[in-house]
């Protein structure tokens, strides 16, 4: 501070000018690069939406850019009526709801005892978690296990192998540990057993972190592709992500079949119905996004605090 006063006024003005310029430089760069990223994120999505509402011939001739050409909704009608899309959506919803509930219950139940530092055998249980986290038994042994347990082609095969994510469970455990000891002691004096303390005191106090972890599990079940592809072969039990992936590969066959039977010649093309299935798969995520963003940001903050 002292030395600053000795700088001649002229020189000081120069410095301020320099500072202003670098401020502007950085801000311009920020607007340019961030806007570029936004465009790169948004444009592919707009293109797909535009395609989904366009006429098939317009897509095939490469005319569709960011706005539908010869607008129509034949593609959506086909995907919803002629394919198993809705069934796949229903299956995924079911697996997501049941799976998330089961995972939350199992994780909370496992996290609570581990959050007690005086728990006898705590080190051993934490060691088990670490092993599970670091060493993976692998695809083939897991597949054989599912086959051996007779779980192939059942939704349990999508839930049981992912029942507890050690990472998520540890987030809950760390939060439980951070709860004030006094509240829990008060409950104990009140005569509440461990179960009652957990259900009526610890869980209500931990709602923010439980919401975040619920979301992490829900996204996992919703987006899961590999287990569903590996364990589910019954076409009636196909889940959304597998359906969409296979649909993209087989869309050509469907279009050929439909073109032969209907008078909708030219309305549909592979590109249109692939775009329709993709857009339909995006809608639930975007609809729930405000909720997702709120709890995910919270989750990241919690995650970074834990270290």
């Amino acid at each position: 501070m002292m030395s600053k006063q000795h700088i001649p006024a002229e020189k000081r003005r120069k410095r301020t000018a320099l500072m202003d310029r670098s401020d502007i430089e950085v801000e311009v760069l920020a607007y340019v690069l961030v806007s570029l990223c936004v465009l790169l994120a948004v444009i592919p999505c707009i293109h797909v939406v535009a395609r989904s509402f366009s006429k098939g011939t317009a897509v095939i001739s490469g005319m569709v850019t960011l706005w539908p050409i010869n607008p129509q909704i034949e593609g959506y009608r086909t995907v919803l009526r002629e394919t198993e899309f809705l069934r796949a959506l229903g299956n995924t919803l079911l697996v997501t709801f049941v799976g998330t509930a089961a995972s939350m219950i199992a994780s909370i139940l496992f996290a609570y005892p581990l959050s007690k530092t005086e728990l006898v055998g705590r080190k051993f249980f934490i060691l088990l978690c670490m092993i599970v986290m670091v060493f993976n038994g692998g695809m083939v042994p897991n597949y054989l296990l599912m086959r051996g347990l007779g779980l192939l082609d059942s939704f349990s095969a999508l839930i049981f192998p992912a029942l507890i994510s050690v990472f998520n469970m540890l987030i809950i455990k760390n939060y439980f540990e951070s709860l004030p000891e006094s509240v829990l002691e008060y409950a104990a004096i009140d005569g509440a057993g461990d179960f009652r303390t957990l259900v009526s005191i610890v869980c209500p106090l931990s709602m923010p972190v439980l919401a975040t972890v619920t979301l992490l599990y829900a996204i996992h079940y919703w987006n899961n592709y590999f287990n569903a592809m590996l364990y589910i072969l019954d076409p009636y039990k196909v889940t959304l992500q597998v359906f969409i992936r296979n649909f993209i590969a087989d869309a050509g066959t469907l279009v050929n079949q439909l073109e032969r039977t209907a008078e909708t010649m030219g309305n549909l093309s592979t590109g249109v119905i692939i775009a329709c299935a993709t857009v339909l798969g995006i809608i639930p995520i975007v609809a729930l996004y405000p909720f997702v963003q709120r709890f995910m940001l919270q989750g990241i903050t919690i995650g970074s605090e834990k270290g």
Binding site: V34, C37, V38, A41, V42, P44, C45, H47, V48, R51, I219, W222, N223, Y225, L240, Q241, V242, I244, R245, I248, G271, I274, A275, A277, T278, G281, I282, I285, V286, Y289, V292, Q293
Partner: peptide, 21 residues
């Protein structure tokens, strides 16, 4: 938000988007 949303898309969805683009 615009940059963040794609994180929640599954790979199948992203395959659908980019096989189109």
């Amino acid at each position: 938000t615009a940059i963040y949303v794609p994180y929640f898309f599954s790979w199948s969805i992203i395959y659908g988007i980019f096989s189109s683009v």
